[in-house]
Write a protein that binds this DNA or RNA. Structure first.
Length: 411
RNA sequence: GCGGGUGUCGCCAAGUGGUUAAGGCCCCGGAUUGUGGUUCCGGUAUUCGUGGGUUCGAUCCCCACCACCCGCCCCA
């Protein structure tokens, strides 16, 4: 039996890697132009970080974590977990390195693998990659706009212009509570008719009921008195103002968005602004980007109270939406019957920062040229005549035109 | 975790309970021992996801497992 890649993981081969490199480069441009610095945190963290950070009531923590006990019977045995998302780790690093000493806002971006033990399907793997940003120390609505803008800018730079942003506000500590209680109150009589998941959500995280796709549950949300509660603004004045201002910014930036009162999101740490960017063409795994504000998280993980906001995009899902990038061709393929000369020439040209390859297996001239035509823009012919008379024959492989060059620096 | 579908070469695929498992692309070699992308010729699966079972005999029938796909759940 040969060994295969683990379920839900895959190899990124050079062919596909071209597209990945491109995405990463676009992200780097867009984010660094906007003042984000790259941050890389370890792929595993103390399990407790996610339990506390992501939240005990989330599916991610309850059933999707890759958790290991290391240290065995040792007294120092500890539980570690492969990160299922990156926000908790970045917050941990922010606190650990006192990054609040930098004058706020502190802005970070990342491109990194994540791990969730889920049933794989299209657009969903056990090891997948997220590209995203986190920003600390700014509570202003303009910060929200800036974050959403950078998400949109990245998507645009990838050629994805038709995705719409869904937007909602969950309110702050105070009004979120009122809202939650009001929902529970009005739903309570119908609870027996709801699905098992919602019965559990009712206790643990009632707002999550709203994005249940179960028909019976949806019908309950359609009921007049329930709808009234959902649509009634429980949001406090501060939160409302925050949201209204954000919208003004988005309008002035001509960013398309749709307000979706049912948008809740699955991670516990969110408050106020939450948003999602979806694509029609991804089947059921339609979310390309998700994010929001998490003003309480830094404090909850032991830092000083610090407002924060961020988002993450699924790189594999982005890949599915954009056209494949062709790998760049070599500048030169050296066609030669003299390997010793070819190798020296290749070295020289590579030092001149040219992309160069050559044959060192003694293949026939015509085979070398054939190879050249597949992978390079020019064939650099270095045969006995050339070596003897000290020149190079340079053949343009798309036009067939061939010229003699005596000085290699003039290539 | 639940429901459904699929599984023949790197890729796309035909195929049948019975001696050697079509074809195309890609790849390799030759025609063309210093001029490619066209053409022509030739080569590449002891094997049909894996393991059992039924059978004189199974790629094709049955069972289990695995992987992938679609939906649910969840999320990026």
């Amino acid at each position: 039996m040969t060994i295969k890649a683990q379920r839900g993981t895959k190899d990124i081969l050079p062919e596909e890697s071209t597209t990945w490199q491109w995405i990463r480069k676009q992200a780097q441009n867009v984010f660094q132009n906007a003042g984000f610095g790259e941050i890389s945190t370890p792929i595993f963290e103390a399990t407790e970080l996610f339990n506390r950070g992501v939240g005990d009531s989330t599916d991610i923590v309850n059933k999707e974590m890759y958790t290991f006990c290391v240290g065995g019977a040792d007294k120092n045995a500890s539980s570690i977990t492969l990160r299922p998302e990156n926000t908790a780790g970045v917050v941990r690093a922010y606190i650990e390195h006192n990054l609040n000493r930098i004058s706020p806002p502190q802005k970070f971006w990342y491109f990194a693998p994540m791990f969730r033990y889920e049933r794989p399907q299209a657009g969903r793997q056990r090891q997948f990659h997220q590209v995203g940003v986190e920003m600390f120390g700014a509570s202003e609505p303009a910060a929200d706009a800036e974050i959403i803008l950078s998400a949109v800018e990245l998507l645009n730079s990838l050629g994805l212009n038709n995705l719409s942003v869904e937007l909602n506000t969950l309110g702050c500590k105070n009004c979120k509570n009122d809202y939650r209680e009001a929902i529970k109150e009005v739903i309570k009589p119908y609870l027996p008719d709801m699905c098992d998941d919602c019965k559990m959500r009712f206790e643990k995280n009632p707002l999550r009921m709203l994005d249940c796709k179960n028909e019976a549950c949806q019908k309950i949300f359609e009921k007049e008195e329930v709808k009234k509660v959902i649509l009634k603004d429980y949001i406090c004045n501060d939160c409302k103002e925050h949201f209204d201002e954000l919208i003004k910014y988005l309008d002035s930036l001509n960013i398309n968005y749709k307000i979706n009162k049912m948008l809740v999101r699955g991670l516990d740490y969110y408050n106020r602004t939450v948003f999602e960017i979806k694509s029609e063409s991804l089947g059921s795994q339609s979310a390309v980007c998700g994010g929001g504000r998490y003003d309480g998280l830094v404090e909850m993980l032991g830092g000083s109270p610090t407002p924060a906001i961020g988002f993450a995009m699924g790189v594999e899902r982005l890949c599915a939406l954009i056209d494949k990038k062709e790998p760049e061709k070599l500048d030169y393929y050296i066609v030669s019957t003299n390997t010793a000369e070819a190798i020296k020439l290749a070295r020289k040209l590579r030092k001149m920062n040219k992309k160069v390859d050559y044959d060192f297996q003694g293949k026939k001239f015509s085979k070398q040229l054939e190879k050249a035509s597949k992978i390079a823009n020019f064939a650099l012919i270095l045969g006995d005549d050339e070596i003897e008379q000290k020149f190079y024959s340079v053949k343009n492989l798309s036009t067939g035109e061939q010229v003699k060059v005596s000085d290699i620096n003039k290539l």
